[in-house]
């Protein structure tokens, strides 16, 4: 099992500023059976409202410093946090025992967001 935590601002297209990862990218990770959620400085209620608006049933929505709690709550083989800040994403994620990906690195992972990126079996959408 893989768990993926998404930062919002600067990481997702809905972020302020917008990031490179689309909501469909997250949706697909969920559909592919990953444990998916958000870890952001946005109020937790606002994170939940955002996912509800997009019809994505996330497994968790937590504040930025709570990745350790997420790890304690969910059993997974590997834990990823995707974010755009060295100080507020990368370092806390690594301290909490998560692998860290910058948003552009997440786009390059072949096992993540293939359909959202338009990558199909042997073909690439125009």
């Amino acid at each position: 099992m893989i768990l993926i935590s998404f930062d919002i601002d600067g990481t997702l297209e809905e972020g302020d500023p917008p990031g490179v990862l689309t909501i469909d990218f997250v949706r697909e990770a969920k559909e592919d059976g990953f444990l998916v959620g958000s870890c952001s400085d946005r109020p937790i209620s606002a994170q939940r409202a955002m996912w509800e608006r997009h019809g994505i049933e996330v497994d968790f929505a937590v504040s930025k410093h709570m990745l350790g709690d997420v790890k304690a709550r969910f059993r997974a083989d590997v834990y990823y946090h995707i974010g755009d800040r060295e100080d507020l994403d990368k370092r806390p994620a690594e301290r909490a025992g998560f692998e860290f990906l910058w948003p552009h690195e997440a786009l390059e992972r072949p096992w993540l967001g293939r359909r959202a990126r338009g990558v199909f079996e042997g073909t690439r959408a125009g």
Partner: peptide, 17 residues
């Protein structure tokens, strides 16, 4: 104008220092 987000007591209690 941009992010009509309320802050609930739960949100406040969960915010980082």
């Amino acid at each position: 104008q941009h992010r009509p987000e309320e802050i609930t007591p739960e949100d406040y209690a969960a915010a980082r220092w």
